[in-house]
Computed example of a mutant assay.
Amino acid sequence: MRMISSLIATLFCAGSFAAALPDEPHLYVEGTAKMQVQPDRATIRVAISEKSKQLVEAKNKVDTVVANAIKLAKRFDIKKDDIHAEQLNIHRQTRYNRNTNEEEFEGFRITRSLTLTLGKIDSYPELLQELVNAGITEFNNTEFSVSNHNELADKLKKEAIKDAKSAASELANEFDVDLDKLYSVSFAPMNVPSVPYVRQAARATLMDTESGSYKEAYNTGAITISAQVFAVYLIK
């Protein structure tokens, strides 16, 4: 891992000094790599919303629901650092009365948001049901991810570098030219008018994780993780 990180840092450094393509004959290529993995964690964003003319009563109800949801999260082995409760939001709501041409007070809308990161993905359907039972009224979105994303991303960057090398060799061979030296490289597309040469898209490798099984109603499918590298080679 340290060797990969050092290599990536070196490539970023080289790319930062390459503002444009060289004047000499060159090849501009793109290397790609990707894989599909089953998620093993879920970041769940929910909220409780209450509307009432009695501000204190509504606030107490919202705070109680959030407190119960936090206790519930701990029962599902969600760590304290993976529980984020937002501050209370209070909005005074009015309605325009056409008969009196005045704004009439309708009540207060009180909301609090809660973000939970669940590590035991098999418990996801059960946790959702328990949150509903606890009084949560809004489910904003859920983001599925893998806990070893950085490790996989580093591996893919290394594979993308290999693909870029192969692309350069393939292209040079097709045009009967010889590769000279690497001029520049970047993990983001270069700000140049040229379009890089890309080899035939690589198939995504499917990797399973132990925590990838769901109840059918909550099956999310695989997540695709990808990496790209853009390289310029001088030719002779």
Score class of each variant (00 low, 15 high):
residue 3 M to Q: 13
residue 6 S to K: 09
residue 6 S to W: 00
residue 10 T to N: 15
residue 10 T to P: 06
residue 14 A to I: 11
residue 20 A to H: 04
residue 20 A to W: 02
residue 20 A to V: 02
residue 24 E to G: 02
residue 24 E to Y: 03
residue 25 P to A: 08
residue 31 G to K: 05
residue 40 D to H: 04
residue 44 I to S: 03
residue 47 A to I: 02
residue 56 V to R: 09
residue 57 E to W: 04
residue 63 D to Y: 15
residue 70 I to W: 05
residue 72 L to S: 07
residue 73 A to S: 04
residue 74 K to P: 05
residue 75 R to D: 15
residue 76 F to W: 01
residue 79 K to H: 00
residue 81 D to P: 00
residue 83 I to N: 04
residue 83 I to E: 01
residue 86 E to G: 12
residue 87 Q to C: 06
residue 88 L to F: 11
residue 89 N to Q: 15
residue 90 I to C: 14
residue 91 H to N: 15
residue 95 R to S: 07
residue 100 T to C: 08
residue 100 T to W: 09
residue 104 E to N: 11
residue 108 F to C: 09
residue 109 R to E: 15
residue 132 V to D: 11
residue 133 N to D: 11
residue 138 E to L: 15
residue 144 F to R: 11
residue 148 N to Q: 04
residue 152 L to E: 08
residue 154 D to V: 07
residue 158 K to R: 13
residue 161 I to L: 15
residue 164 A to C: 10
residue 164 A to E: 07
residue 168 A to Q: 00
residue 170 E to V: 01
residue 185 V to L: 08
residue 186 S to Q: 15
residue 188 A to M: 10
residue 192 V to D: 08
residue 198 V to F: 05
residue 199 R to F: 07
residue 207 M to H: 03
residue 212 G to F: 00
residue 218 Y to M: 01
residue 219 N to L: 01
residue 223 I to E: 07
residue 226 S to G: 07
residue 226 S to P: 01
residue 228 Q to S: 14
residue 229 V to T: 12
residue 231 A to T: 11
